[in-house]
Simulated assay, not measured.
Amino acid sequence: MEATKWILCPICGRKTHNKIREDTEMKKFPLYCPKCKQETLVDVERFIVSVCKENI
C-alpha cells in the first residue's frame, strides 16, 4: 500500500482537502485552503510542498 499524506496549507499550516502519494509530482498546482480561504501555487515532489515563485 502506498503511503499518503494530506497537503498542508503553506500559509496557515492546516490540512487542505487534497491528499498526495509518495510518487506524486505537481507543478504550479493551485492549492486552495478552506480554512484561510487563500489560493497558492505550489510545487509538490516526494512529499515536499514548496510555494511556486511565479504567480500567474
Rank of each mutant, 00 (worst) to 15 (best):
Y32R: 11
F47P: 08
H17T: 12
R21L: 00
N18M: 06
I48D: 05
A3V: 10
P30N: 10
P34L: 09
K5P: 01
L8C: 01
E39M: 15
K53G: 06
C36L: 03
I48G: 00
R14C: 00
C52S: 15
M26I: 09
E54C: 03
V49I: 15
P30C: 08
M26E: 14
D43E: 12
I56K: 13
V49H: 02
I7R: 04
L41Q: 02
D23N: 14
K37D: 10
V42K: 09
L41F: 13
C12S: 10
Q38M: 10
T24N: 11
S50E: 15
I20V: 12
T4R: 11
A3W: 04
P10R: 06
C36S: 11
V44Y: 03
K5Q: 13
I48S: 13
S50Y: 00
K15S: 13
I7D: 01
E45C: 13
E54T: 10
K19Y: 01
L41G: 02
K37N: 12
I48R: 14
I20R: 08
C52R: 05
E25A: 13
R14A: 07
I7N: 03
C33M: 11
P34H: 15
K53F: 06
I7A: 10
K15Q: 15
K5Y: 14
H17P: 00
M1Q: 08
L41K: 09
K15D: 10
Q38Y: 03
F47M: 11
I56E: 12
E25N: 10
R14V: 07
T24R: 05
T16G: 02
K27H: 11
K27V: 07
I11G: 05
H17F: 01
C36M: 07
P10K: 07
T40Y: 03
E45V: 10
C12H: 05
I7E: 07
D43Q: 07
M1H: 11
L41P: 01
T16C: 03
M26N: 06
W6Y: 11
K37V: 08
L41R: 03
C33P: 02
V51E: 13
N55C: 02
I11A: 05
V42E: 00
I20C: 09
E45L: 08
